[in-house]
Write a protein that binds this DNA or RNA. Sequence first.
DNA 1: CGCACTATTGAGTATAGTCAACCGGTGTGG
DNA 2: CCACACCGGTTGACTATACTCAATAGTGCG
Lengths: 251, 251
Amino acid sequence: MTSTRRTSPTLPIIAAPANIKAACSSCSLQELCLPVGLSPAEIDRLDRIISSRHATRRGSSLYRIGDPFSNLYAVRTGAFKTVDLSEDGSEKITGFYLSGEILGLDAISTDRQNFGAVALEDSEVCVLPFKRLEELLREIPALQHHFHKIMSRDIMRDQGLMLLLAGMKADARLGAFLIGLSQRFANLGYSAMRFRLRMTREEIGSYLGLTLETVSRLFSRFSEEGLIRIDRREVEILDFTALRAIIEVRD
Amino acid sequence: MTSTRRTSPTLPIIAAPANIKAACSSCSLQELCLPVGLSPAEIDRLDRIISSRHATRRGSSLYRIGDPFSNLYAVRTGAFKTVDLSEDGSEKITGFYLSGEILGLDAISTDRQNFGAVALEDSEVCVLPFKRLEELLREIPALQHHFHKIMSRDIMRDQGLMLLLAGMKADARLGAFLIGLSQRFANLGYSAMRFRLRMTREEIGSYLGLTLETVSRLFSRFSEEGLIRIDRREVEILDFTALRAIIEVRD
DNA sequence: CGCACTATTGAGTATAGTCAACCGGTGTGG
DNA sequence: CCACACCGGTTGACTATACTCAATAGTGCG
């Protein structure tokens, strides 16, 4: 909504010049991203393999389905969606990624991108050359273990979503989605109770296996019931407990 | 649920004695499991960290939710399901695991088992102490990369299931399930066209987000339509192409 | 032999999907 | 600068898909 306004049409999509190259050592996401638990010296070694930052404009692709895989991407600022395209052209959203989260882990197994990554707002990522990262993992046990935890967390999260999709009714899905977003924003230091959705109703529906109409109706219902306040994409959670209660009603 | 009945109370669940300890070097799953692409010398080193095999009787748990995490498990023979228990006692199935597949990857992130693993038939696993495995990954780049691929493949597979659950109708879900099983059996060298289901209709339904009645009705319908022949748990795929066609009708 | 479990099938229902109209804000072009 | 078109969102009416409840039958194990 608003972000388009802020978007300067002249901003090119380029790797950032070397002088503003990525630097974990000075990054505010240090405690959420790859460097967790590393010593300053180790962070410095990590810094050295991160070739560049990369800006992606809202609506543009960071990578497309079928692209050869060579890098992982750590979201620095902004937000992304990953999308699966079916033959008929319709797209399904497989995930949303916020600051500190890693994109591209699924491509390791296939050496090609299996999904496309599209920026939901003007965003910036750190480019992590995977080959060099693997070398570094061999040398820094703490980084190795943390990387395994990151992949494992992805598996966990996906399984959580599977449970949600397989077992929950529409209202519980949307409730769980809001609570999940709330927690992720809280982790980033933002308010857990008030945040802005980065995606449309249609994108939420695609992700949750619902239609945009159902999502819209549920937002209205939650609002009437006093669980949330919602104005366009601004969400305020008014009754966190009641929202949690909705998702417990799992068959 | 039911499984308690069949479990013989006398067969102990134990680590196999040392003389029949796990040995990748002589395992028929070498090309599907961890050792993919390793030299004989490297496989030997892998062998040395695999402390034991472990037999699990049909219906018994390999591990339970909340167990501390220290090992991964490679399925050697048999099949497992992983289950999530909700407070009210109902269980949801998050995955099925056949020979050569790795159990427990989600627990790396939490240091505890997030799901329970229950044998669908009398089964045997190789126990992989994760700490020692990580050490070995640091020393054998080929093993490291393959392990990353295995984790990545898990992420891919989960995302595939998410797409299925979020976007497909009941018949497409079941069709995709059958085709997926068929491919996995084919990988193991079994027939792709004829196999035995290891799980009940209820377990399939739980996994696919359907009721057991819907699963049963769909099997009947597929059967009437000449797509498959099914007798209890014996499945024969008669028209693979038509089955594939069903799952394309997404959205 | 009988019980418990698994599976099949039917009838009625509820949930979410489909189709459609409408609204408001935003950005574009006359 | 205003009008208009477009996109995202809301709401309503109707419908279809899959769920619930229920009855029945076949298997396999104790």
